[in-house]
Amino acid sequence: MRAFGLIIVLLTGGLLLWGVRDFPLFGAADSPANGGVVTAYYLQHTMQDARVPNAVTTVLADYRSYDTMFETAVIFTAGIAIFAILRVFDDRGGRRLRKSQDAPVKGDQYRIIVGTTSRLLIAPIQLFALYVLVHGHHSPGGGFQGGVIIGASFLLLAVARNLQTSLDRFPERRFLAMGAGGVLIYAGTGLLCMLLGRNFLDYGALQAVLPATGPEMARSHGIFAVEIGVAVTVSASMFAVYAMLASRGRLKDGL
């Protein structure tokens, strides 16, 4: 059976590598990704259309904003699915779970070096996360990366102290509400554009309600609004998944 598996793996791997021969070379100017009409349009019009120098941000949050909206919905769904599978509300009557021999010992949260270092680091990490979120128009980053880093700062707190310390600052009700709220911010921005008489997620319409000097700046602000929605959902989902996994869905005595 092992030999059979090895043959299948080698055959599939060989076929995949054989298929790569037909790919354009790395950075080739005539490859479909580089030479298409759409790519040229995106790169040339990102400044005029939305005043955003980073074309990646414009493509993700403006030109292909439906894509990103449903990606955010997918992350929210993944967080909710893990919550629905793992969350245990009633601890009584169930089979006694075997305590792992590697479980943290009592008093572990008082480790002084780890505790102090992480306490000093968490504030700069969150500040950096906000920078990544806000500066996504001009540099790599944006809502997704910023949201993950915000979530990671709470994970660091949970690992360095314990889950309860983290949950005191980011309780269950709040991360569930934020997970849904982020998707709502994104879709709400789109709906607002619709109420103002343009298409769904056509941020140019926000000119009427935002202090923007024209439809281009309104699109820039619209991109920022949906990035905030993405960051809120992603940070809440990351923390929800960790809290469920670390405490077997009981949200107490976790790692």
Partner: peptide, 29 residues
Amino acid sequence: AVDVAFTEAAVGAGVSTLFMIATVYQTTR
């Protein structure tokens, strides 16, 4: 692909490693 590299560092190396470590602590090592 700097945006992808950023995401890989934050999600792949940071958060998902922690997810796996949390799961390992709930089972056997």
